[in-house]
Design a protein around this nucleic acid. Structure first.
Lengths: 349, 349
DNA sequence: TTGAAAGCGCTAACAT
DNA sequence: ATGTTAGCGCTTTCAA
């Protein structure tokens, strides 16, 4: 049971060493005021000597709070979510919270499984980018359990909780109108499942822009993907199979991964971007754009998504009074790079 | 104390509902065999009705094991580390482990702080990419505490522990020799601090290649950065300030972020890559390369780094017998894209 | 097959 | 300013 080296030093051990009660040690550890300077010093010496690290489990068990929150995302390999993670982590760390990350991979099953695990670990709250509308029961469960949580990037209809999202409709309109202004009329859309609010809203913005400018919607130009690279590539391949006259002159990818996939397929087909076909997308790919700046995008302040969401969660965690659900909609920013448009305007109708 | 809705349902509650002792419930939860089918069913029904989720803290406190491991990286926004994270997470999840991620941001201080927090949360083990040689005391602490850990990507001299790394010397040689074979003689190096094993080894590989081919080393072409984008950009700016004759015809960036920064600066200076100056780097930037494929790199199987490291850690965690420290060195792969070389060969000496 | 008691490491609430 | 007691939710041990 008892080990030779300092493995698992407890508060008791420190108390014995310093010749005081466990309560005194506890008080020193927790920065309480009511400790005589001399005693405090003895205890601190003992803590240092023994290399004591308090057991957060025991403390959590007793207090019902672990100072741990979870960040449940759908794809941690997407830079957009990575930036969110950094924002969350920063604010969390500054406030003494530990963050557990998890990846649902756009799968409601995986998501449910993770929430279960996270709950069992007694996390104090969560920040979630829900996999889709199917996540609804899960969120209801959290509400019943009175676990504070904040939705990030995506919302679920009819559930009034704190949420930090981007203006997807507006962003999609801006992007589409940018293309229209450059003379494009046959604009394809590669969107993800309508189960996901962001995909739904971006599609809406695209359609609104077309309607507003009296451009007829061609269903053959609207492809469904899953926010991943491969589906973007497949969508582009299909678009290229259309007869020349019905092919798009521009493709609007509803997220960055779709755009990458689209561009890959176009390259395979020897179609140059932006000379032969324009490509724009939602969410930036900072690294990629640094290399070769031609992709016009609507970028979102992902890091800010994270910091605000964490702030909201903190309010809930430390909140004295009950606050109504808040929703922050952050505006996206149109980044025009080596304007695919400029060239196209001249050469297209 | 007692709440109205099912908030914090305990094993006791389930026991009461099912009319059995807590032990019986515990046995059902833990899949023990010695439970009568009828009893088991009653208990399972109660668990479901009450929505009972076992308290991992209480269990951990008692057993001294939490089935949680930590992954401590230096930069989660680098795709290389993101891939590692996915690999680790996959293997961990399949084996019933929860992963806590943390970012040291290349700072030994932050790293030490995180390890402290993680230890207090009683994680069972860690996978660490150490910030640098300064991390040595921290690792010694873990050894004293008998916390299993595995080094990933970077090693610390004179410490015999499991490690999963890439062949940095070999990779750097390959990359440098690739440039030499294309006719380059003035090859610059942008490397990170020698405090970091990967930076040290890549520098070594670069030097070895030059020596081997009888090319004199020009200290003015060797710049120190910090593995981040800005330092790569600054290094390139300085290189461009050299008199024409002493400027490099190629730049070897010792990681992907350095390369991005270098390319940005070159673009600002209207230097075209690869026509005017070649750029190669260690670690791929998959997304970026998909967009515009001209960056020749030495790519590492990051995901495999993660899966193997997690496997090693699992061995330690479940290990019956003590195994000697293992070190796996994974070979990198040279990816030549639109060979910056081909063009250069013709135009340079 | 099931239950009772004890206690993991810590701190809230109450002494002193 | 310091100590004592009790117990968080669970499982280990031992008994029935």
């Amino acid at each position: 049971m008892e080990s030779d080296p300092p493995i698992g030093v407890t508060l008791q051990d420190v108390a014995a060493r310093a010749g005081v009660s466990t309560m005194t040690v506890s008080r020193v550890v927790n920065q309480a005021k009511r400790v005589a300077p001399a005693t405090r010093e003895r205890v601190e010496r003992a803590i240092h000597d023994l290399g004591f690290v308090p057991n957060a489990l025991a403390r959590g068990l007793l207090q019902g709070r672990t100072h741990t929150i979870a960040l449940l995302l759908t794809d941690i390999s997407n830079p957009f979510f990575t930036q969110i993670a950094r924002g969350v982590e920063d604010v969390a760390q500054r406030n003494g919270y530990t963050v557990i990350f998890a990846n649902s991979d756009e799968s409601p099953q995986k998501e449910a499984q993770y929430v279960q695990t996270l709950l069992s670990h007694q996390i104090d709250g969560l920040i979630i980018a829900p996999a889709g509308n199917a996540s609804r029961p899960l969120l209801d469960l959290l509400i019943r359990r009175k676990k504070p949580f904040v939705l990030i990037d995506r919302v679920i209809d009819g559930i009034a909780v704190d949420a930090v999202v981007g203006d997807n409709i507006g962003g999609a309109r801006i992007l589409t109108e940018h293309l229209i202004a450059l003379g494009h009329r046959r604009i394809a859309l590669v969107h993800a499942s309508s189960e996901i609010s962001t995909a739904r809203e971006r599609q809406r913005g695209y359609l609104e822009a077309l309607w507003f400018h009296g451009i007829e919607v061609d269903q053959d130009l609207i492809m469904e993907g899953d926010f991943k690279r491969a589906s973007g590539a497949e969508a582009a391949r299909q678009l290229l199979r259309l007869p020349q006259a019905r092919r798009p002159t521009a493709i609007f990818a509803d997220n960055n991964f779709h755009a990458i996939g689209v561009i890959e397929s176009l390259r395979e087909a020897k179609q140059h971007v932006p000379q032969d076909i324009a490509v724009v997308c939602f969410d930036d790919i900072e690294l990629a754009s640094a290399l070769q700046p031609f992709l016009t995008v609507v970028a979102q302040p992902a890091r800010t998504f994270g910091t605000i969401a964490m702030q909201f969660l903190l309010d809930r965690l430390t909140g004295t009074e009950a606050v109504a659900a808040r929703r922050v909609v952050l505006p996206p920013e149109l980044i025009i790079r080596e304007s695919c448009g400029a060239q196209l305007k001249a050469q297209k109708r």
